[in-house]
Amino acid sequence: PEAADLRVLAKHLYESYLKNFPLTKAKARAILSGKTSDNAPFVIHDMKSLAEGEQFINCRQLPRQEQRRTSMGLIQSELQSELELRFFRSCQSRSAEAVSEVTEFAKSIPGFVNLDLNDQVTLLKYGMIEVLIIMMSPLMNKDGTLISYGQIFMTREFIKSLRKPFGEIMEPKFEFSVKFNMLELDDSDMALFLAVIILSGDRPGLLNVKPIEVLQENVLHSMELHLKMNHPDSLQLFAKVLQKMTDLRQLVAHHVQVMQLMKETEIDMCLHPLLQEIMKDLY
C-alpha cells in the first residue's frame, strides 16, 4: 500500500505539471529534433533576425509607443542597445509568468498550502530560480534554446554576443543543461524533481522546518521509486539527479551576481516587480 501511495503522488504531480506548464519536455524535444507537425521555430542568430523576430516574442507588456521608438532615426548602436533592452524586458515578462505557473504547481503539492504562509513564500523565493533553470533545460541544446513557448530558437552564440552583462547570463545555464539533459529525465520525472527542489528545508529564514522535511521525504521516496520503474537500466539515477541540486545553488549565486551588475550598469533597466521580490536580499 505504501508503494501505491507513492505512485499516486508521482501521478498527481505529473498531472499538475502538465496542467500548469505550457511547454513540456516532450514537445520541446520534438521541436528541437524537427519531429513535429508544427512549423519549425523562427531562428534568431543575429541582430537582424532579432529585429525581424521581435514580433513573435511574447511581449504583451511592452507599450506600443516604446516599440515605435526604433523608427525615430537613432544611430545604429542605439538601435541595437534598445533592441537588447526590449528583448530583455520580454524575457522578464515571460519569467514573471513562469513564476506564477511554478507557484500554482507548488500549491498543488500535497501539504504545501497547509505550511505556514511565510514559509510558503520563503520556499518559493529561494527555490524559484533553481526551478526555472531546471525547467529551461529541456528547451536547450548545446547550440541554443527555445523561447516564446517553442516558437523561437535563439542561438547560444548570439546570446553570448549580447553586450555585457546580458551575454553572460545564459552561458552557465547552457553548460548545466547540456549535462543535465544527459540524464534523460522525462516530464514525469521532472515533476517530482521540481517538487523536491521546492520543498527544501534548508532555505534561510524558514520558521517551521519539520513539516517541510516530512513533505520532501515523501516526494523523495516517490521519486526514487518512480525513477527505478521509469528508468530500470539507468544506474544510480536517483543519486545523480540529487547531485544536480548542488550545481543549482552555484548557478543561482552566479545569476544573482549578474543581475546585481545589471542593476548597477543598466540605468534604463527596471526589473519586473515580481522578479524584484524574488531577487531582493536573495543570498
Binding site: S93, A96, S100, E277
Partner: peptide, 20 residues
C-alpha cells in the same frame, strides 16, 4: 509581508492573476 506582496497574492489566489 509587504516585501513579498505579489508572491503572497499568488499563493492566496485560486487562479493565476492575469495582470502579470
Amino acid at each position: 509581508k509587504e516585501k513579498h506582496k505579489i508572491l503572497h497574492r499568488l499563493l492566496q489566489n485560486s487562479t493565476s492573476p492575469v495582470d502579470l
